[in-house]
């Protein structure tokens, strides 16, 4: 099976700091890959590189066989990569529904004239955008629909904001979904619920998923493969069991035992 996305020898540095060096990475169709690593390992930079927010110094990113380097962030979204943000970044003064509707921008085409003349095509597309938004939101049960549809995003509870961010990313109709710490800050019950949802994102919606996560329970439950980053270098990859027993990984997270250090 050909990889959906593959990354070759990716290096980026900020000033003298190598945020990522010679990173090689690939994700296959329908896979769920978790990227873990201590704070400052370069995980979010990795996402920013893929989505075009940061330019690499060298290396290449291929999405479905074609290089996506140099594309603007909106073009990256257009070719089918969507992301969420580590610190939830919704459009706070727009309603829940609008947040999801606006994410379908690159999949729709009506211009100002359609809106001014209220053409048939415009009204049809508006209806479709709305229906699709409601469909995406109902993936989260009753939490984001009903009266919530017309509430501004800033009144939502923290967990619901995280859910809405995922819904917004889903609405861009991606092939590859990048989730940046989807369960951060959630309570154990909510984490379990979201873990199940991530599984269903693949099985029902057919997304390929790359996820940054600190919660090892979630990582263990959903990922096919785990990639461990430390100081911008891949130090291990494989199944959760393999990685979690890797001495290098344990060292990166817990430090070296005192007697070895001497």
């Amino acid at each position: 099976m050909s990889p959906v996305m593959s990354i070759r020898d990716l290096t980026v540095s900020f000033g003298g700091l190598n945020a990522l060096s010679d990173l090689n990475f690939h994700v296959d169709e329908g896979e769920i890959v978790s990227v873990i690593g201590p704070n400052g390992a370069g995980k979010t930079t990795f996402f920013n590189l893929i989505t075009g927010l940061v330019e690499p110094n060298s290396g290449d990113i291929l999405f479905e066989g074609e290089s996506i380097l140099g594309l603007d962030p909106y073009q990256v979204t257009e070719i089918g990569i969507a992301r969420t943000f580590q610190n939830v970044r919704l459009f706070p003064n727009m309603t829940v529904l609008e947040n999801v509707m606006v994410a379908q921008h690159c999949r729709t085409h009506q211009h100002a004239f359609g809106a001014l003349l209220q053409t048939k095509a415009f009204r049809k597309e508006e209806r479709e955008i709305r229906e699709r938004a409601e469909e995406v939101l109902s993936f989260f049960g009753t939490r984001l629909i009903g009266y919530r549809l017309d509430q501004p995003a800033f009144v939502l509870s923290y967990a619901n904001r995280r859910r809405l961010e995922i819904a917004r990313a889903m609405a861009t109709q991606p092939r590859l979904l990048l989730l940046d710490e989807p369960v951060a800050g959630m309570n154990p019950k909510e984490s379990v619920e979201l873990t199940n949802l991530i599984g269903r994102l693949r099985s029902e919606w057919g997304f390929t998923i790359v996820m940054i996560e600190h919660d090892m329970g979630v990582v263990r439950d959903v990922s096919d493969r785990v990639v461990v980053l430390d100081h911008g270098v891949t130090i291990a990859q494989g199944s959760y069991e393999e990685v979690s027993n890797d001495p290098q990984v344990i060292e990166a997270y817990l430090g070296r035992p005192a007697q070895d250090a001497s």
Binding site: Y74, A82, C106, T172
Partner: peptide, 17 residues
């Protein structure tokens, strides 16, 4: 409206800002 709220995110959500 999305651009007004958060331009960076609007661009990441597929809007040609």
């Amino acid at each position: 409206m999305a651009i007004r709220e958060d331009e960076k995110v609007a661009e990441a959500m597929g809007i040609n800002t």
